[in-house]
């Protein structure tokens, strides 16, 4: 057992976790944050993507014990009260989902790629989005609308970043 203290979606949490507990299990089973999905459990599908210290990672391929002191954000932590995050709103507008199972990972990866490209001052083109989605699989194959949603949200997030300056 390891005592792990983390900040999850802005709240401090402290739990004793076995050495083998994955972050995905910790979030879903200990914290009951079941928005993070486990699709393949073999690091391929990206349904389990969350942000750890500002970076998108596969929570099924990360040990909870290794994250003492980490700041974790899940799909439950991105909306501002009743206001959806622009990435969530864009997935809604563009119907960027069919069955919805991959959506939490798609949205967390989408936010991460927009943040990274904006930080580097690079244009997030449609081609770049498709390349960046390499680790997120949609088995309904709804990629066209997912790409459109991320492209749209990138614009909204850029406008919001400018307005905040």
């Amino acid at each position: 057992m390891n005592n792990v203290k983390m900040t999850v979606n802005g709240k401090a949490v402290s739990r004793d976790v076995p050495d083998t507990t994955l972050l995905s299990e910790f979030l879903r089973e200990d914290l009951r944050l079941t928005g993070t999905h486990v699709g393949c459990d073999t690091s391929q599908c990206g349904a389990c993507v969350v942000h750890v210290d500002g970076r998108a990672v596969k929570s099924c391929t990360t040990l909870a014990a290794s994250l003492d002191g980490a700041d974790v954000t899940t799909i439950e932590g991105i909306a501002n009260g009743g206001d959806l995050h622009p990435m969530q709103a864009a997935f809604n507008t563009h119907h960027g989902l069919q069955c919805g199972f991959c959506t939490p990972g798609m949205i967390m990866s989408g936010i991460d790629m927009v943040n990274r490209f904006q930080a580097d001052g690079k244009d997030l083109t449609e081609e770049a989005i498709r390349e960046e989605l390499e680790g997120n699989i949609c088995r309904c194959t709804g990629y066209h609308n997912i790409v459109k949603a991320i492209e749209d949200a990138a614009g909204t997030m850029a406008d919001m970043a400018k307005a905040a300056e």
Binding site: K58, T62, M113
Partner: peptide, 9 residues
């Protein structure tokens, strides 16, 4: 290498 999430770990 791999994909963005793999590259961040």
């Amino acid at each position: 290498i791999g994909d963005p999430a793999v590259r961040s770990m």
